[in-house]
Nucleic acid binder design. Sequence first.
DNA 1: CGATAAATGCAACCAAATTGCAAATCCTTT
DNA 2: AAAGGATTTGCAATTTGGTTGCATTTATCG
Lengths: 147, 147
Amino acid sequence: MEHCDIRTTLENAGLSKTVQREAVLSTLIRADLPLCARDILVRIGRECRINKVTVYRVLDSFRTAGIVREIPTEHGETFYEMACRHNPTHPHFYCRICRSLACLPSAGIEQKWLQGIRPGDAAIESVVINFTGLCKSCQKRNRTVSV
Amino acid sequence: MEHCDIRTTLENAGLSKTVQREAVLSTLIRADLPLCARDILVRIGRECRINKVTVYRVLDSFRTAGIVREIPTEHGETFYEMACRHNPTHPHFYCRICRSLACLPSAGIEQKWLQGIRPGDAAIESVVINFTGLCKSCQKRNRTVSV
DNA sequence: CGATAAATGCAACCAAATTGCAAATCCTTT
DNA sequence: AAAGGATTTGCAATTTGGTTGCATTTATCG
């Protein structure tokens, strides 16, 4: 998969270039699925000195700049993924047991969907389409346990 | 708007009848928009003695029994609404400023959506379609402030 | 390089939700 | 109606994801 360039992404977003921002952005660009703040902290590890608070603030600046998308889940963890041309909007699947988030194929229905919605007077900034249930491995595990 | 009957709803769900469950269910049935645990506690007020923990547990039992739907938001609050024939699935709008949740007309596209999605091996239990942005009054307020 | 604005780290804090356990309540069986 | 066992509730304490205030460090621009 093709990736965005870290430096140009930050520049285009008008964000100053810091090691922490580069680390978070690099982690998100390399990731093959959405990550939460904790995931990002773990993945950065000793690569660079970074604080939990900084991760949240960096993610917030990315969201405001529009370079990441935010996907809230039922347990209060918020996941993030790149919002670039390499990663068009798509729905997600969240497993309520293992709390993993997976990307689903978009089938390109979003647009038709959106056209059918009349949001009244609200100014819509983002749409989240989220399926929840049990992932394959949790189905298996649950079945085994319950018997 | 027509409403569900409290007792039969509990009976059909196989849930024993307690004052607390009746109070929560009654509150949700009467509500004209999704409520979070806090909302429910406030609305019940002195009507019946009920603890915060009980509200969460009651809501969880309702969700498991399939009589309510859960709508998670970006700030970690989870909203609940009746999942009965009087209240078919529909998308919601969440204001990121005042944190209010409003119901949007469904336009009946959910089903088409579902048909287009291939969730792999996951067992889907629910779908949440959530628009986020600024509600009318928060747009106005924000504009005034920023000028 | 030096100044100024912005970003970071740390500690403390907050709010939503959860857990463990004892007390109260429900429901079935006499 | 009373008893007894299972379920539900209340309370206190805890967990968790996220936020705030402020001092220190770092980036950026003249």
